[in-house]
Amino acid sequence: MALGKIPRNELILNRSGLIVGELHKVQNAIGTGYLSAFPFGFFSVKLLNGQDIWAPWYVIHKIMAGLLDQYIFLQSQLALEMVIDEANFFHTWVEGVVAQYGIGHWINMLNVEFGGMEEVLYNLYGVTKDPNHASLAARFVKPSFYDPLVQNTDQLGGIHANTHLAQANGMAAAFEVAQNTSQQHAVANFFRFLTAQHSYATGGSNDHEYWTAPNTIGDALQVTDGL
């Protein structure tokens, strides 16, 4: 049958099934549950030891979120098994890091762009009800961002918007899935601060991906002659 004659839903299922299947081959070949386009040493050596590496978690989040969506929207049991295996692998590793090096060392390791790890793990917990998935999600709460929000303090100025917006989504998921009222309070404050004190009337909230001090976002506007 020509591609143009195949129903669109069937094309999506076939294509997504192929992608999941090929990723499964990679995960199986590694054999630990880990799945990424780069070796685990990016975590166990570089990130652990504070070497110059920016966003390995960012990629893991995208892989896990995509696999979870394959289950939620297309009922792929294989994708669910794969994302569970990855979550279980990282739960074991992160708890080992905390046990060996202490919680302070782990918190320092969060000074990278880790995407929506909290969000996807709470969403996974919503499916599996495995407490390990919720406890791993909670490890991605970054105190320097979260604590001021809980304390009703606006300290958004000077921090990287793209990194922290995803963390706000994680706070929302913590409430929606696990009924964490502290995180609900934090994300409500975040929304209030962002919209009232850091946003243009047209909707943008940052300059070159960074938030400015409260009520100063207008200073980023530039008037150019002839425009």
Rank of each mutant, 00 (worst) to 15 (best):
A2Y: 09
L3T: 12
G4D: 12
P7N: 05
N9R: 10
E10N: 10
L11R: 12
I12M: 08
G17N: 12
G17H: 00
L18R: 12
G21Q: 05
L23D: 06
Q27T: 08
N28C: 13
G31I: 08
G33C: 03
G33Y: 01
S36D: 15
A37Y: 11
F38L: 05
F38G: 04
F42W: 10
S44K: 05
V45D: 15
K46I: 06
L47W: 01
L47N: 03
N49I: 02
A55T: 13
V59K: 06
M64R: 00
A65V: 06
L68M: 03
Y71I: 05
L78N: 09
E81S: 13
M82Q: 03
V83T: 06
I84S: 06
N88L: 11
F89S: 02
T92R: 14
W93E: 08
V97Q: 00
V97C: 02
V98F: 01
Q100P: 00
G104W: 03
H105F: 00
W106I: 00
I107P: 02
I107D: 13
N108H: 13
V112M: 07
G116A: 14
G116V: 01
M117K: 01
Y122C: 05
Y125W: 12
G126P: 03
P131N: 12
H133L: 09
H133S: 08
A137H: 00
A138L: 11
R139T: 06
S144Y: 10
D147A: 11
D147W: 10
D147R: 08
L149C: 07
V150A: 09
Q151Y: 08
N152F: 11
D154P: 04
T163L: 09
H164G: 07
G170H: 04
A172L: 13
F175T: 05
E176P: 06
T181A: 13
Q183V: 08
H185Q: 14
N189L: 03
F190Q: 03
F191Q: 10
F191S: 10
L194A: 14
L194G: 02
A196N: 15
Q197T: 15
A201M: 08
N206T: 07
Y210L: 14
W211H: 00
N215V: 01
T216D: 07
I217T: 02
Q222S: 13
V223K: 12
T224I: 14
G226M: 01
L227K: 12
